[in-house]
Design a protein around this nucleic acid. Sequence first.
DNA 1: AAAAAAACTATCCAAATGGATTATTGATGA
DNA 2: TCATCAATAATCCATTTGGATAGTTTTTTT
Lengths: 223, 223
Amino acid sequence: MIRIGIVDDKRNNRIILADKLRRNNLFDIRLEAANGEQFLHKMMELKFDERPEIVLMDLEMPVMDGIVTIAAGSSLYPGTRYVVLTIFDDDDRIFNAIKAGACGYLLKEESGDIIADILMNLWKNGAGPISPSIAYKILQMIQNPPPAKPLSGAQKSENLFQLSEREKEILRFLCQGLEYKEIAEKLSISANTVKKHVINIYDKLHVNNKARALHIAYTKNLL
Amino acid sequence: MIRIGIVDDKRNNRIILADKLRRNNLFDIRLEAANGEQFLHKMMELKFDERPEIVLMDLEMPVMDGIVTIAAGSSLYPGTRYVVLTIFDDDDRIFNAIKAGACGYLLKEESGDIIADILMNLWKNGAGPISPSIAYKILQMIQNPPPAKPLSGAQKSENLFQLSEREKEILRFLCQGLEYKEIAEKLSISANTVKKHVINIYDKLHVNNKARALHIAYTKNLL
DNA sequence: AAAAAAACTATCCAAATGGATTATTGATGA
DNA sequence: TCATCAATAATCCATTTGGATAGTTTTTTT
Protein backbone atom coordinates (compact mmCIF):
# COMPACT_ATOMS: atom_id res chain seq x y z
CA MET A 1 0.00 0.00 0.00
CA ILE A 2 1.34 3.37 -0.97
CA ARG A 3 0.55 6.15 1.47
CA ILE A 4 -1.11 9.03 -0.32
CA GLY A 5 -1.93 12.59 0.62
CA ILE A 6 -4.49 14.77 -1.13
CA VAL A 7 -4.53 18.55 -0.90
CA ASP A 8 -7.40 20.36 -2.54
CA ASP A 9 -9.66 23.11 -1.35
CA LYS A 10 -12.78 21.54 -2.82
CA ARG A 11 -14.05 18.81 -0.60
CA ASN A 12 -15.78 17.21 -3.54
CA ASN A 13 -12.59 16.98 -5.52
CA ARG A 14 -10.89 15.24 -2.66
CA ILE A 15 -13.67 12.72 -2.39
CA ILE A 16 -13.75 11.96 -6.08
CA LEU A 17 -10.02 11.55 -6.24
CA ALA A 18 -9.87 9.44 -3.12
CA ASP A 19 -12.57 7.23 -4.59
CA LYS A 20 -10.71 6.82 -7.84
CA LEU A 21 -7.65 5.74 -5.96
CA ARG A 22 -9.38 3.47 -3.51
CA ARG A 23 -10.87 1.47 -6.32
CA ASN A 24 -7.77 -0.67 -6.55
CA ASN A 25 -6.25 -1.67 -3.28
CA LEU A 26 -2.86 -0.17 -3.78
CA PHE A 27 -3.36 3.19 -2.17
CA ASP A 28 -3.88 4.18 1.40
CA ILE A 29 -5.22 7.72 1.71
CA ARG A 30 -3.52 8.92 4.84
CA LEU A 31 -3.88 12.65 4.72
CA GLU A 32 -6.38 15.10 3.34
CA ALA A 33 -6.08 18.84 3.58
CA ALA A 34 -7.96 21.79 2.18
CA ASN A 35 -4.97 24.08 1.86
CA GLY A 36 -1.24 24.28 2.29
CA GLU A 37 -1.32 25.55 5.82
CA GLN A 38 -3.44 22.65 6.93
CA PHE A 39 -1.30 20.22 4.99
CA LEU A 40 1.96 21.32 6.58
CA HIS A 41 0.36 21.23 9.96
CA LYS A 42 -0.86 17.70 9.51
CA MET A 43 2.52 16.59 8.17
CA MET A 44 4.18 17.95 11.27
CA GLU A 45 1.93 15.90 13.47
CA LEU A 46 2.56 12.65 11.65
CA LYS A 47 5.44 10.39 12.49
CA PHE A 48 8.02 9.84 9.82
CA ASP A 49 6.72 6.49 8.68
CA GLU A 50 3.12 7.60 8.68
CA ARG A 51 3.61 10.48 6.30
CA PRO A 52 2.31 10.07 2.78
CA GLU A 53 4.88 8.90 0.28
CA ILE A 54 3.17 10.77 -2.50
CA VAL A 55 1.07 13.92 -2.21
CA LEU A 56 -1.32 15.03 -4.91
CA MET A 57 -1.41 18.79 -4.72
CA ASP A 58 -3.92 21.13 -6.25
CA LEU A 59 -2.39 24.42 -7.32
CA GLU A 60 -5.41 26.66 -7.18
CA MET A 61 -6.01 27.11 -3.48
CA PRO A 62 -6.75 29.96 -1.12
CA VAL A 63 -4.83 30.59 2.11
CA MET A 64 -1.64 28.96 0.95
CA ASP A 65 -0.90 28.37 -2.66
CA GLY A 66 0.21 24.96 -3.90
CA ILE A 67 3.60 26.07 -5.16
CA VAL A 68 4.64 27.62 -1.87
CA THR A 69 3.36 24.55 -0.13
CA ILE A 70 5.49 22.29 -2.28
CA ALA A 71 8.51 24.49 -1.76
CA ALA A 72 8.15 24.33 2.00
CA GLY A 73 7.03 20.71 2.09
CA SER A 74 9.76 19.36 -0.11
CA SER A 75 12.36 20.98 2.09
CA LEU A 76 10.89 19.89 5.36
CA TYR A 77 9.81 16.39 4.38
CA PRO A 78 12.08 15.15 1.64
CA GLY A 79 10.71 11.64 2.03
CA THR A 80 7.51 12.72 0.37
CA ARG A 81 7.10 13.31 -3.35
CA TYR A 82 4.76 15.92 -4.70
CA VAL A 83 2.67 15.57 -7.82
CA VAL A 84 0.78 18.60 -9.05
CA LEU A 85 -2.86 18.05 -9.86
CA THR A 86 -4.45 20.76 -11.89
CA ILE A 87 -7.23 21.45 -14.31
CA PHE A 88 -5.10 23.72 -16.44
CA ASP A 89 -2.35 22.45 -18.62
CA ASP A 90 -0.46 25.61 -17.98
CA ASP A 91 3.21 25.05 -18.60
CA ASP A 92 4.50 28.01 -16.69
CA ARG A 93 2.81 27.19 -13.47
CA ILE A 94 3.80 23.58 -13.70
CA PHE A 95 7.32 24.60 -14.46
CA ASN A 96 7.36 26.75 -11.35
CA ALA A 97 5.96 23.91 -9.34
CA ILE A 98 8.73 21.70 -10.56
CA LYS A 99 11.34 24.23 -9.63
CA ALA A 100 9.75 24.39 -6.21
CA GLY A 101 10.29 20.66 -5.84
CA ALA A 102 7.35 18.88 -7.46
CA CYS A 103 8.35 15.76 -9.28
CA GLY A 104 5.55 15.59 -11.79
CA TYR A 105 2.08 16.72 -12.66
CA LEU A 106 -1.25 15.25 -13.64
CA LEU A 107 -4.39 16.66 -15.14
CA LYS A 108 -7.47 16.24 -13.01
CA GLU A 109 -9.51 14.70 -15.78
CA GLU A 110 -7.23 11.72 -16.15
CA SER A 111 -9.00 8.47 -15.49
CA GLY A 112 -8.45 6.67 -12.24
CA ASP A 113 -6.53 3.96 -14.03
CA ILE A 114 -4.10 6.34 -15.59
CA ILE A 115 -3.53 8.14 -12.35
CA ALA A 116 -3.01 4.87 -10.55
CA ASP A 117 -0.58 3.71 -13.23
CA ILE A 118 1.43 6.84 -13.04
CA LEU A 119 1.59 6.92 -9.29
CA MET A 120 2.70 3.30 -9.22
CA ASN A 121 5.41 4.11 -11.68
CA LEU A 122 6.53 7.08 -9.66
CA TRP A 123 6.65 4.97 -6.56
CA LYS A 124 8.52 2.07 -8.13
CA ASN A 125 10.96 3.86 -10.38
CA GLY A 126 11.14 7.29 -8.88
CA ALA A 127 10.33 8.61 -12.33
CA GLY A 128 7.75 11.33 -12.14
CA PRO A 129 5.05 11.93 -14.69
CA ILE A 130 6.24 14.74 -16.91
CA SER A 131 4.68 15.85 -20.12
CA PRO A 132 6.94 16.15 -23.16
CA SER A 133 6.43 19.88 -23.35
CA ILE A 134 7.61 20.36 -19.80
CA ALA A 135 10.59 18.12 -20.35
CA TYR A 136 11.47 20.14 -23.38
CA LYS A 137 11.34 23.38 -21.43
CA ILE A 138 13.66 21.94 -18.89
CA LEU A 139 16.07 20.94 -21.60
CA GLN A 140 16.03 24.39 -23.06
CA MET A 141 16.67 25.85 -19.70
CA ILE A 142 19.80 23.79 -19.42
CA GLN A 143 21.00 24.48 -22.94
CA ASN A 144 20.24 28.20 -22.81
CA PRO A 145 20.65 29.22 -19.24
CA PRO A 146 18.77 32.42 -18.44
CA PRO A 147 20.88 35.36 -19.61
CA ALA A 148 23.23 37.28 -17.36
CA LYS A 149 23.40 34.53 -14.82
CA PRO A 150 26.56 32.86 -13.60
CA LEU A 151 26.58 29.25 -14.73
CA SER A 152 27.56 28.06 -11.30
CA GLY A 153 24.78 26.03 -9.80
CA ALA A 154 23.52 28.69 -7.43
CA GLN A 155 20.68 30.66 -8.87
CA LYS A 156 18.67 32.93 -6.66
CA SER A 157 15.28 31.42 -6.19
CA GLU A 158 12.86 34.14 -7.09
CA ASN A 159 11.62 35.26 -3.71
CA LEU A 160 9.20 32.41 -3.53
CA PHE A 161 8.40 33.20 0.07
CA GLN A 162 8.07 36.95 -0.31
CA LEU A 163 10.64 37.80 2.29
CA SER A 164 11.37 41.48 2.59
CA GLU A 165 14.95 42.70 2.21
CA ARG A 166 15.25 43.17 5.93
CA GLU A 167 13.98 39.69 6.55
CA LYS A 168 16.46 38.17 4.13
CA GLU A 169 19.21 40.11 5.81
CA ILE A 170 18.21 38.75 9.18
CA LEU A 171 17.82 35.24 7.83
CA ARG A 172 21.42 35.40 6.66
CA PHE A 173 22.56 36.38 10.12
CA LEU A 174 20.54 33.56 11.61
CA CYS A 175 22.30 31.12 9.33
CA GLN A 176 25.61 32.38 10.60
CA GLY A 177 24.54 31.35 14.07
CA LEU A 178 24.13 34.81 15.56
CA GLU A 179 21.74 35.31 18.43
CA TYR A 180 19.02 37.92 18.48
CA LYS A 181 21.01 40.41 20.44
CA GLU A 182 24.10 39.94 18.31
CA ILE A 183 22.05 40.60 15.21
CA ALA A 184 20.46 43.55 16.96
CA GLU A 185 23.86 45.00 17.66
CA LYS A 186 25.03 44.55 14.09
CA LEU A 187 21.97 46.28 12.76
CA SER A 188 21.73 48.83 15.54
CA ILE A 189 18.19 47.91 16.38
CA SER A 190 16.55 46.34 19.37
CA ALA A 191 16.71 42.63 20.03
CA ASN A 192 12.96 42.69 20.32
CA THR A 193 12.72 43.90 16.78
CA VAL A 194 15.00 41.19 15.59
CA LYS A 195 12.82 38.69 17.30
CA LYS A 196 9.74 40.13 15.68
CA HIS A 197 11.38 39.84 12.28
CA VAL A 198 12.35 36.26 12.97
CA ILE A 199 8.81 35.35 13.91
CA ASN A 200 7.59 37.02 10.73
CA ILE A 201 10.10 35.00 8.74
CA TYR A 202 8.86 31.80 10.35
CA ASP A 203 5.33 32.75 9.37
CA LYS A 204 6.30 33.25 5.76
CA LEU A 205 8.26 30.00 5.64
CA HIS A 206 5.52 28.19 7.57
CA VAL A 207 7.87 26.81 10.16
CA ASN A 208 8.14 27.17 13.89
CA ASN A 209 11.77 27.00 14.80
CA LYS A 210 15.19 28.07 13.71
CA ALA A 211 16.42 24.73 12.48
CA ARG A 212 13.52 24.31 10.09
CA ALA A 213 13.88 27.85 8.82
CA LEU A 214 17.56 27.31 8.16
CA HIS A 215 16.80 24.05 6.49
CA ILE A 216 14.59 25.80 4.00
CA ALA A 217 17.06 28.62 3.65
CA TYR A 218 19.87 26.25 2.75
CA THR A 219 17.97 23.86 0.55
CA LYS A 220 16.06 26.52 -1.35
CA ASN A 221 18.99 28.86 -1.76
CA LEU A 222 17.46 31.72 0.13
CA LEU A 223 20.87 33.12 0.97
CA MET B 1 9.72 9.73 -44.19
CA ILE B 2 12.05 11.08 -41.58
CA ARG B 3 15.71 10.90 -42.44
CA ILE B 4 17.63 9.13 -39.70
CA GLY B 5 21.29 8.68 -38.89
CA ILE B 6 22.74 6.04 -36.62
CA VAL B 7 26.15 6.27 -35.02
CA ASP B 8 27.39 3.30 -33.04
CA ASP B 9 30.65 1.45 -33.03
CA LYS B 10 29.00 -1.97 -32.82
CA ARG B 11 27.79 -3.04 -36.26
CA ASN B 12 25.28 -5.29 -34.62
CA ASN B 13 23.71 -2.49 -32.63
CA ARG B 14 23.28 -0.47 -35.78
CA ILE B 15 21.56 -3.32 -37.52
CA ILE B 16 19.20 -4.05 -34.65
CA LEU B 17 18.28 -0.43 -34.28
CA ALA B 18 17.83 0.09 -38.00
CA ASP B 19 15.57 -2.95 -38.09
CA LYS B 20 13.48 -1.68 -35.21
CA LEU B 21 12.97 1.57 -37.05
CA ARG B 22 12.36 0.14 -40.46
CA ARG B 23 9.49 -1.95 -39.17
CA ASN B 24 7.10 0.91 -39.68
CA ASN B 25 7.58 2.89 -42.83
CA LEU B 26 8.21 6.24 -41.30
CA PHE B 27 11.94 6.24 -41.14
CA ASP B 28 14.55 6.39 -43.80
CA ILE B 29 17.96 5.35 -42.55
CA ARG B 30 20.27 7.58 -44.53
CA LEU B 31 23.50 7.44 -42.66
CA GLU B 32 25.36 4.91 -40.58
CA ALA B 33 28.70 5.47 -38.95
CA ALA B 34 30.90 3.59 -36.51
CA ASN B 35 32.35 6.63 -34.79
CA GLY B 36 32.25 10.39 -34.63
CA GLU B 37 35.01 10.95 -37.12
CA GLN B 38 33.26 8.84 -39.72
CA PHE B 39 29.93 10.47 -38.97
CA LEU B 40 31.18 14.00 -39.48
CA HIS B 41 32.92 12.95 -42.65
CA LYS B 42 29.76 11.46 -44.10
CA MET B 43 27.72 14.48 -43.09
CA MET B 44 30.12 16.67 -44.99
CA GLU B 45 29.65 14.68 -48.14
CA LEU B 46 25.87 14.85 -48.02
CA LYS B 47 23.89 17.70 -49.52
CA PHE B 48 21.84 19.80 -47.14
CA ASP B 49 18.52 18.13 -47.89
CA GLU B 50 19.96 14.65 -47.75
CA ARG B 51 21.34 14.94 -44.29
CA PRO B 52 19.54 13.08 -41.52
CA GLU B 53 17.02 15.13 -39.60
CA ILE B 54 17.61 13.09 -36.49
CA VAL B 55 20.75 11.26 -35.46
CA LEU B 56 20.78 8.55 -32.84
CA MET B 57 24.15 8.72 -31.21
CA ASP B 58 25.85 6.14 -29.07
CA LEU B 59 28.08 7.65 -26.43
CA GLU B 60 30.51 4.83 -25.83
CA MET B 61 32.70 4.94 -28.90
CA PRO B 62 36.40 4.79 -29.69
CA VAL B 63 38.18 7.30 -31.91
CA MET B 64 35.75 10.12 -31.30
CA ASP B 65 33.45 10.14 -28.37
CA GLY B 66 29.72 10.81 -28.75
CA ILE B 67 29.63 13.98 -26.73
CA VAL B 68 32.39 15.64 -28.70
CA THR B 69 30.68 14.50 -31.87
CA ILE B 70 27.42 16.10 -30.84
CA ALA B 71 29.15 19.29 -29.86
CA ALA B 72 30.84 19.51 -33.23
CA GLY B 73 27.89 18.23 -35.25
CA SER B 74 25.31 20.50 -33.69
CA SER B 75 27.49 23.47 -34.50
CA LEU B 76 28.27 22.42 -38.05
CA TYR B 77 24.86 21.07 -39.00
CA PRO B 78 22.22 22.80 -36.93
CA GLY B 79 19.47 21.35 -39.10
CA THR B 80 20.07 17.97 -37.52
CA ARG B 81 18.93 16.98 -34.06
CA TYR B 82 20.84 14.60 -31.90
CA VAL B 83 19.38 12.00 -29.62
CA VAL B 84 21.71 10.17 -27.30
CA LEU B 85 21.28 6.43 -27.15
CA THR B 86 23.06 4.73 -24.34
CA ILE B 87 22.99 1.82 -22.00
CA PHE B 88 24.04 3.86 -19.00
CA ASP B 89 21.94 6.50 -17.36
CA ASP B 90 24.70 8.31 -15.65
CA ASP B 91 23.93 11.86 -14.57
CA ASP B 92 27.17 13.48 -15.56
CA ARG B 93 27.09 12.16 -19.09
CA ILE B 94 23.48 13.14 -19.57
CA PHE B 95 24.21 16.59 -18.41
CA ASN B 96 27.24 16.89 -20.65
CA ALA B 97 25.43 15.51 -23.66
CA ILE B 98 22.64 17.98 -23.23
CA LYS B 99 25.02 20.85 -22.81
CA ALA B 100 26.79 19.71 -25.93
CA GLY B 101 23.53 20.10 -27.83
CA ALA B 102 21.71 16.81 -27.62
CA CYS B 103 17.99 17.31 -27.54
CA GLY B 104 17.03 14.00 -26.05
CA TYR B 105 18.31 11.01 -24.26
CA LEU B 106 17.08 7.46 -24.63
CA LEU B 107 18.07 4.22 -23.05
CA LYS B 108 18.91 1.45 -25.47
CA GLU B 109 16.54 -1.00 -23.87
CA GLU B 110 13.48 0.96 -24.88
CA SER B 111 11.27 -1.00 -27.26
CA GLY B 112 11.19 -0.21 -30.94
CA ASP B 113 7.70 1.16 -30.65
CA ILE B 114 8.62 3.55 -27.94
CA ILE B 115 11.63 4.76 -29.82
CA ALA B 116 9.57 5.24 -32.96
CA ASP B 117 6.91 7.10 -31.06
CA ILE B 118 9.39 9.38 -29.47
CA LEU B 119 11.23 10.16 -32.65
CA MET B 120 7.97 10.99 -34.38
CA ASN B 121 7.12 13.31 -31.58
CA LEU B 122 10.48 14.98 -31.77
CA TRP B 123 10.06 15.47 -35.49
CA LYS B 124 6.55 16.83 -35.27
CA ASN B 125 6.67 18.94 -32.13
CA GLY B 126 10.30 19.61 -31.64
CA ALA B 127 9.88 18.26 -28.13
CA GLY B 128 12.88 16.15 -27.30
CA PRO B 129 12.52 12.54 -26.31
CA ILE B 130 13.50 11.90 -22.77
CA SER B 131 12.90 8.65 -20.97
CA PRO B 132 10.90 9.30 -17.85
CA SER B 133 13.72 8.22 -15.63
CA ILE B 134 16.11 10.54 -17.40
CA ALA B 135 13.65 13.41 -17.25
CA TYR B 136 13.41 12.86 -13.57
CA LYS B 137 17.16 12.95 -13.20
CA ILE B 138 17.33 16.22 -15.09
CA LEU B 139 14.64 17.55 -12.83
CA GLN B 140 16.67 16.66 -9.84
CA MET B 141 19.69 18.35 -11.30
CA ILE B 142 17.69 21.52 -11.64
CA GLN B 143 16.20 21.23 -8.23
CA ASN B 144 19.52 20.42 -6.57
CA PRO B 145 22.22 21.94 -8.67
CA PRO B 146 25.48 20.17 -7.93
CA PRO B 147 27.44 22.32 -5.51
CA ALA B 148 30.35 23.90 -7.32
CA LYS B 149 32.99 21.61 -5.93
CA PRO B 150 35.59 23.81 -4.31
CA LEU B 151 38.63 21.61 -4.19
CA SER B 152 39.88 18.45 -5.82
CA GLY B 153 40.79 15.33 -3.91
CA ALA B 154 39.29 15.33 -0.46
CA GLN B 155 35.68 15.60 -1.57
CA LYS B 156 34.60 12.74 0.62
CA SER B 157 35.27 14.88 3.72
CA GLU B 158 35.73 11.61 5.50
CA ASN B 159 34.60 12.37 8.98
CA LEU B 160 36.68 15.48 9.29
CA PHE B 161 35.14 16.15 12.66
CA GLN B 162 35.29 12.60 13.97
CA LEU B 163 31.60 12.41 14.68
CA SER B 164 30.44 9.01 15.84
CA GLU B 165 27.63 7.27 13.97
CA ARG B 166 25.19 8.16 16.70
CA GLU B 167 26.25 11.77 16.57
CA LYS B 168 25.79 11.95 12.80
CA GLU B 169 22.39 10.40 13.19
CA ILE B 170 21.41 13.01 15.72
CA LEU B 171 22.87 15.81 13.64
CA ARG B 172 20.63 14.76 10.78
CA PHE B 173 17.60 14.95 13.02
CA LEU B 174 18.67 18.37 14.21
CA CYS B 175 18.81 19.56 10.62
CA GLN B 176 15.27 18.43 10.13
CA GLY B 177 14.24 20.79 12.89
CA LEU B 178 13.37 18.21 15.51
CA GLU B 179 13.61 19.10 19.16
CA TYR B 180 15.49 17.07 21.75
CA LYS B 181 12.47 15.25 22.95
CA GLU B 182 11.26 14.45 19.47
CA ILE B 183 14.64 12.97 18.63
CA ALA B 184 14.61 11.14 21.94
CA GLU B 185 11.30 9.57 21.05
CA LYS B 186 12.48 8.52 17.60
CA LEU B 187 15.56 6.87 19.03
CA SER B 188 13.88 5.55 22.16
CA ILE B 189 16.36 7.17 24.46
CA SER B 190 16.11 9.95 27.01
CA ALA B 191 15.97 13.59 25.98
CA ASN B 192 18.83 14.18 28.38
CA THR B 193 20.95 11.80 26.42
CA VAL B 194 20.09 13.53 23.19
CA LYS B 195 21.10 16.79 24.74
CA LYS B 196 24.37 15.30 25.86
CA HIS B 197 25.05 14.10 22.34
CA VAL B 198 24.24 17.50 20.95
CA ILE B 199 26.65 19.17 23.31
CA ASN B 200 29.32 16.65 22.32
CA ILE B 201 28.64 17.44 18.68
CA TYR B 202 29.06 21.14 19.36
CA ASP B 203 32.36 20.40 21.02
CA LYS B 204 33.62 18.47 18.02
CA LEU B 205 32.45 21.12 15.59
CA HIS B 206 33.76 23.87 17.87
CA VAL B 207 30.48 25.73 17.95
CA ASN B 208 28.09 26.70 20.68
CA ASN B 209 24.64 26.69 19.20
CA LYS B 210 22.39 24.86 16.82
CA ALA B 211 22.46 27.35 13.98
CA ARG B 212 26.24 27.25 13.75
CA ALA B 213 26.27 23.48 13.90
CA LEU B 214 23.74 23.29 11.10
CA HIS B 215 25.72 25.79 9.12
CA ILE B 216 28.72 23.50 9.21
CA ALA B 217 26.57 20.48 8.54
CA TYR B 218 25.10 22.01 5.41
CA THR B 219 28.17 23.65 4.01
CA LYS B 220 30.52 20.76 4.73
CA ASN B 221 28.14 18.08 3.57
CA LEU B 222 27.98 16.30 6.85
CA LEU B 223 24.59 14.86 6.01
C1' DA C 1 -3.74 62.97 1.47
C1' DA C 2 -5.09 58.52 2.76
C1' DA C 3 -4.17 53.74 3.01
C1' DA C 4 -1.14 49.94 3.27
C1' DA C 5 3.28 47.81 4.13
C1' DA C 6 7.60 47.44 6.50
C1' DA C 7 10.20 48.35 10.18
C1' DC C 8 10.61 49.32 14.66
C1' DT C 9 9.85 48.66 20.07
C1' DA C 10 8.01 46.52 24.07
C1' DT C 11 6.23 43.15 27.68
C1' DC C 12 4.62 38.69 29.49
C1' DC C 13 5.10 33.95 29.65
C1' DA C 14 6.20 29.17 28.62
C1' DA C 15 9.27 26.16 26.52
C1' DA C 16 13.66 24.86 24.62
C1' DT C 17 18.50 25.21 24.73
C1' DG C 18 23.43 25.31 26.44
C1' DG C 19 26.67 24.38 29.90
C1' DA C 20 28.69 22.01 33.74
C1' DT C 21 28.98 18.02 36.45
C1' DT C 22 28.41 13.28 37.94
C1' DA C 23 27.62 8.44 37.19
C1' DT C 24 26.53 3.62 35.13
C1' DT C 25 27.02 0.30 31.48
C1' DG C 26 28.96 -2.27 27.70
C1' DA C 27 32.41 -2.79 24.13
C1' DT C 28 37.22 -2.41 22.46
C1' DG C 29 41.86 -2.68 22.84
C1' DA C 30 46.48 -2.64 24.84
C1' DT D 1 42.88 -7.25 33.40
C1' DC D 2 42.78 -2.52 33.28
C1' DA D 3 42.04 1.66 30.82
C1' DT D 4 39.41 3.99 27.59
C1' DC D 5 35.54 5.38 25.11
C1' DA D 6 30.80 5.64 23.43
C1' DA D 7 26.30 5.66 24.84
C1' DT D 8 23.22 6.15 28.33
C1' DA D 9 20.95 9.15 32.08
C1' DA D 10 20.16 12.75 35.48
C1' DT D 11 20.23 17.42 37.93
C1' DC D 12 20.91 22.40 38.45
C1' DC D 13 20.86 26.78 36.45
C1' DA D 14 21.09 30.70 33.33
C1' DT D 15 20.10 32.07 28.82
C1' DT D 16 17.72 31.93 24.48
C1' DT D 17 13.88 31.20 21.94
C1' DG D 18 8.93 31.06 20.34
C1' DG D 19 4.34 32.94 20.61
C1' DA D 20 0.89 36.39 21.49
C1' DT D 21 -0.31 40.96 21.77
C1' DA D 22 -0.01 45.93 21.42
C1' DG D 23 1.82 49.61 19.97
C1' DT D 24 4.70 53.71 17.13
C1' DT D 25 7.26 55.36 13.22
C1' DT D 26 8.82 55.24 8.36
C1' DT D 27 8.22 54.18 3.61
C1' DT D 28 5.69 53.02 -0.25
C1' DT D 29 1.69 52.86 -2.98
C1' DT D 30 -2.62 54.41 -4.45
